[in-house]
């Protein structure tokens, strides 16, 4: 299997479409024969990132590179940025507005979940410029 790259444009503030990119990536990984636990980890990490871009950044872009050994995920947006990444990583911390919480989001678990389900995660964010999140999940990890 050769490495493949998938790109998705994520529209902002559209919760009815949120999850389409994640579902598509999950389907591709399934078709490629990856282990279900690995697929679940990638799907959850991407979905959390996708939701974050919809809620906080007016959308963005997801790029996924799939190789037999690992999947690399890059989430890029030009939203407002994260003023305090360390604080944002704390479970339970959320800046999601009330209408978003009413949909079941805003538990402050998004970034912690992304870290939990990936093997490597890096966040680069600048206020007023945007945020880039890079994640890697190894196919042979548990």
């Amino acid at each position: 299997m050769s490495a493949i790259e998938l790109k998705y444009a994520i529209p902002g503030d559209d919760f009815t479409r949120a999850g389409e990119a994640s579902s598509s990536i999950k389907m591709r990984l399934k078709q490629m024969g990856f282990d279900p636990c690995f697929i679940r980890r990638v799907a959850i990490a991407v979905y959390e990132g996708e939701i974050n871009m919809v809620i906080h950044a007016n959308g963005g872009e997801i790029v996924v590179n799939i190789s037999p050994a690992s999947t690399d995920i890059t989430l890029t947006d030009d939203g407002p940025g994260i003023p305090d990444v360390e604080l944002a990583m704390k479970a339970g911390f959320s800046t999601a507005p009330e209408n978003v919480r009413n949909l079941g989001f805003g538990a402050g678990m998004g970034l912690p979940n992304m870290k939990k389900y990936t093997d490597e995660m890096d966040i680069q964010s600048e206020v007023g410029v945007g945020t880039t999140v890079r994640m890697k999940v190894y196919a042979n990890a548990t």
């Binding site: 919760f15 009815t16 579902s23 999950k26 949909l103 079941g104």
Partner: peptide
């Protein structure tokens, strides 16, 4: 008790 479309997405992605 969450019957919106996001619950369906979560069900798919979390298997």
């Amino acid at each position: 008790v969450m019957g919106n479309v996001n619950s369906v997405a979560v069900a798919v992605l979390a298997d």
